[in-house]
Design a protein around this nucleic acid. Sequence first.
RNA 1: GGGCAGUUACCCAAGUGGCCAAAGGGGACUGACUGUAAAUCAGUUGGCAGACGCCUUCGGAGGUUCGAAUCCUUCACUGCCCA
Length: 393
Amino acid sequence: MQGTEYGDEELKQTMARELKERLLEAEKEGRPLRVYCGFDPRTSDLHLGHSVPMRKLRQFQELGHEVTFVVGSFTSLIGDPSDKDKLRPRLTADEVRHNAATYAEQAYKILDREKTRIRFNSEWLAGLSFEELINLASNFTLQQFITRDNFRKRWENGDPIYLHETFYSIMQGYDAHALQTDVQVGGTDQLFNIVTAARKIMTFLGDKPNIAIILGILPGTDGEVKMSKSLGNHIPLLSTPEDMYGKVMSVPDKAMGAYMRLVTRWTPDRIAALEADLRSGAVHPRDAKMEIAREIVSIFHGEESALAAEEAFKKVFQQRDLPDVMAEYGLQPGQTVLDVLLAAGLVASKSEGRRMIEQKGVRLDGTVLERADAAFPHPGVLQVGKRRFVRVK
RNA sequence: GGGCAGUUACCCAAGUGGCCAAAGGGGACUGACUGUAAAUCAGUUGGCAGACGCCUUCGGAGGUUCGAAUCCUUCACUGCCCA
């Protein structure tokens, strides 16, 4: 149960015990466990944070269990309020379809394509009647929702909490019933949805409640808060190897533990050993992080690409050399430095370009350019800041 | 349905007629230092010109005024209290 995080020892014990019982039971019945995790198709590109529950699903697959990847096509009409202190914008059906389409392909970077069932929760949620909803809803009190941290904060801040946001938990609980699952995987932000809502609804509907596997939340590249695209601290699964490697390296040291436990394929023993070496000083934190970065890139792009990305990283950032590949721009006659910066897309506006030049952030072949209005000196590698490069020809 | 308060830049938030492109904080970006880390320090953070200046922006629309984020009308949305 590496990477699990219940925030409550008793709950953890209960879940571990139930899981054991369920395993024995399933074995007796000669069937694998039915395991599922729901994903919100809010965005079309998944990031490392999404990979955490997928990794757990993959482990179940490898142990021979049956894994269902649920696309929250219906739930995303609401948007899960769990990790949010604000109302989420509702998606249109078209957006959901489009996002879901690209979703599965990315998921297969982790999951075993042959062994994964994909389901859309609109299959069973769209047909629920108002009467059924009333029955389900009667299992919950308003207080249970309001005392949840995310709702409580909004309540205290005087921010709006919409009625339909409370449906989310109920809908997710119904997913578990519809799929007759044994195990549900999710992050700590899903604690209420899984442990309270889903189990309650399953019990109410006469099922044996599913077991919650609650995983830690992966912090973003800032090392502080949950990885999310909207916060801009995410590492997309579709990043290039170089980009992914660099982004992992930019994660603060204090988050290394979380990355090792939640993203890598490493065993607990291996992680413990590396952490011990870090503590004793036998391994430099940078080298440890490079190992993590290489491992993570390997998962998504393979060993070879990961090694290449590492070489590129060393070259550009440790030796302050230039990357091998960069965008190109064809110099036009009569262009000033500023013109080229803008036309090559290195800056968003002329004002920004001037600012960059004033701040000595613009270099041509390593020489700082001081004059925005001067004619562009000569073809070469134009650099803005540390990581924006264009080869001007 | 009634009363009151509110809606400001990426986010939070100050500003109640000119000195407001709009304080402060966060974030982001640049530079120094580094391990492209963190922390720290210095700076930048609407656009066009870059010297003066001009233009767009303070929920939407309209109005008062030489002049509006600030006053008035109206519409939309939110919170609180009452029903």
